[in-house]
Design a protein around this nucleic acid. Sequence first.
DNA 1: TCAAAAGTGTTTCACTTACACCCATGA
DNA 2: TCATGGGTGTAAGTGAAACACTTTTGA
Lengths: 230, 230
Amino acid sequence: MQNQLSHIKVAVDAIVFGYSKQDGVSVLLIQRKYPPFKNSWAIPGGFVLEHESLETAVKRELEEETGITVNYLEQLYTFGEPERDPRQRVIAIAYFGLVKASMYQELKASTDAENAQWFSIKKLPPLAFDHKQILQAAIARLRSKIRYQPIGFELLDKKFPFSDLEKLYTALLDKDINRRNFSKKILSFDFLEETGEVSKPDGKGRPSKMYQFNQKRYRELLKEGFHFEI
Amino acid sequence: MQNQLSHIKVAVDAIVFGYSKQDGVSVLLIQRKYPPFKNSWAIPGGFVLEHESLETAVKRELEEETGITVNYLEQLYTFGEPERDPRQRVIAIAYFGLVKASMYQELKASTDAENAQWFSIKKLPPLAFDHKQILQAAIARLRSKIRYQPIGFELLDKKFPFSDLEKLYTALLDKDINRRNFSKKILSFDFLEETGEVSKPDGKGRPSKMYQFNQKRYRELLKEGFHFEI
DNA sequence: TCAAAAGTGTTTCACTTACACCCATGA
DNA sequence: TCATGGGTGTAAGTGAAACACTTTTGA
């Protein structure tokens, strides 16, 4: 095997989720400029360079195509059916990323991102290749993972009112949540801390305390055998 | 992109677990015949052919190298660090497989398997490439997955005494299990059925009822929103 | 002073945990 | 009849679910 060449190409894709109170959970898509599927919406991604790690490749492609930097990234699944790309055999290692609400707002301003756009996961456009299937796998991962790992905080701002967290969970889990029991449960975990600030009420109602996720405390709890579960 | 060739090669690996009361949980390894890592033990696997799906490739390689057929297979993770193979860039899509106790016994008889062998996960040999890391990921997956999905039955025979299941769980989860509460919990799920048979006691003690996993009933329960958890 | 949203106390109920005892078999 | 492993009943403890009430703000 003297550096043989392969007929199979290796690509990475990035399914990036963002959140806002107005639009709920959204995913970042780009519009294709060239055939096949010209002008279709697609998941950002591209081919892996010979000496670059898979994660580096995802981050690079994401930066090039959308200008976005994620604050959470994990491997999702590898899609490799022989016919998934009509041109030639391409296997795609899909990654799952999250960005904070502040980054979500910034996309509009970026110049790299002229053909990148957020789509609410409730109103998705038709997608190129097998990207519908990939996106569905990512949404399933997000929905299940948010129940046993505190990744919800990666979608909110650093400091947030408690109701934001509750709205996020309501948006992702279908059943509606009992406000009282939800707050009792989350606060009993003891990894949220009050910042001392309060939110100015937008319009009406009592202002709420601002909280932030204490990552260090969470890691300590994990070491003690703690298990997060909603 | 007219069928360009890639400098990155695509391989699949299969981490297959088996179980027996004597050896506990074991993993199937092969001894390498050629350099690099000649004579080292390694996870079975090989390169993906141009027109074959990833799953087909895993099953084919497993059959060729060990003669084993799995009754459960899922994708584990894709390993793609640039330096993981000293010869050239190879990304490996690792799969996670389980075989029933009867298949576990058969390996010894198979001729294909002259250089394949079961190793207890408690006494593992040094491994080629980054296979130690891959195997650790697989063991972690098995340990965590057995808690929220009834894959334990894929490691036992079709019919088994209850204590076999208990021993399997004791072997995988570190903490020891309260026999009474474990059986109450499993039986309350209502996907195990008595076969009417009893085991002949091997040596001593009261014979036990034989049970079998009712896959159909389990699927029904899932539809009703049932959630398995130990 | 009213509507809206935040914040909190308490009872009920179900399930887990812990413990103890009985049963069937071979030697 | 004894040792061994299989099979089962139940009380106590813990935590989730349900519900109702109070507080703080803007209009």
